[in-house]
Design a protein around this nucleic acid. Structure first.
Lengths: 192, 192
DNA sequence: TTCATTTCTTGTCATAGGTCAAGTGGTACT
DNA sequence: AGTACCACTTGACCTATGACAAGAAATGAA
């Protein structure tokens, strides 16, 4: 099994080589085509994915039916809807492949067994989730303190592959602006 | 020990009465005076609190030195800086009592012992954290889809005690607007 | 009670970004 | 080749909210 990627994702001081092997062996390779949904709102997530290749977004619908991109997932990242997976409730979010994707999948049941039998794994999981929470809070603060242009430039720096590969309208809704505005911002910031 | 509050907070299908007792017995009552800091940026959190009485806020500083309130904690809520506590890193946030407070405190070491010895407790913790993550993501979406007035009305509905007890400037920075704007919004929406 | 300080309100004016609508270029299907 | 549909750009105008500044009202300390 070609699991270099997984070893990197699960790297944690409390996890031994044997434990890592056990964890990795429960992942299966899966493919998604551009446009496919990994999770649709209303479904209960039964697994999560580790993205080896491709670009993914999550989004919700606002009351006007417009969709708001809530996150982008790039290579080496965990693609997951946490509330649905861990609280066993229907997802409010959709998760969709923006390009063809290669992923490693692990089922919730297998995950649970590891989580409750390997101390280091539950530590890893908690650390991962606290990092996600931190990033989410940062996003909210950025919406308050940064201008649209600053938010765009930050995204460009932190996830250049998103800016290069995602349609402008998805990037715009992620940044909290209209696509017209993003088009103007891009024009301004490119001309240098 | 008067632990009705704690029993309510730790309510979870996988936790037995004995386990709940063990968990509650590791909490100690502590008091804070209005204005006191429960955590300052730069410190590593060594505990978390359950708020029995009072009102608390967390905040960060933006690059102009202004502070941005990132959250309010009301009675029965867990007052915590997740990243610092679980990743053992210095906090970027401050946590401060807005009124005199009565809390129940549990130390990180005691928490860890429970977390790794009681299956239901690690499930409870994960569920709690995934709920926090959900709320944080909702906040980011609300910043995008809702007007300032709508955000204010939502806060009023969800946490009326905050609107009644927190200074206007903290509420304003939490909502992502200036205090002048909030003052006008309040005037508009009150006149009914 | 007085003075100082903070909190909140209100006014005027400025601006980032929204709305709506038209236009261009690309891609896919028939 | 023609048609339909996206994705993106651009223009003209509008609006919510910010910036700044001056009061008023409340709070707290001496």
């Amino acid at each position: 099994m070609d699991d270099g990627l997984l070893l990197q994702v699960y790297e944690h001081p409390l996890l031994s080589q044997e434990e890592l092997k056990a964890i990795c062996s429960l992942h299966k390779k899966v493919h998604f085509q551009r446009g496919n949904f990994m999770l649709k709102e209303g479904q209960v997530a039964g697994e999560y994915l580790i993205l080896e290749e491709g670009l993914v977004r999550s989004f919700v619908h606002d009351y006007n039916g417009n969709d708001i991109t809530t996150n982008f997932f790039s290579e080496n990242e965990i693609v997951i809807e946490v509330s649905s997976l861990f609280q066993r409730i229907p997802s409010k979010e959709n998760i969709q492949a923006l390009t063809d994707c290669i992923c490693w999948k692990i089922d919730f049941g297998d995950f649970q067994n590891l989580y409750h039998s390997i101390t280091g794994f539950s530590e890893w999981g908690r650390a991962w989730m606290s990092q996600s929470l931190f990033e989410s809070k940062q996003r909210a603060v950025s919406m308050i303190t940064d201008s649209a242009t600053e938010r765009y430039l930050k995204l460009l720096e932190e996830k250049p592959s998103v800016v290069q590969n995602a349609p402008l309208k998805h990037i715009a809704s992620y940044l909290g602006i209209t696509d017209s505005s993003l088009s103007r911002i891009r024009k301004e910031t490119t001309r240098s």
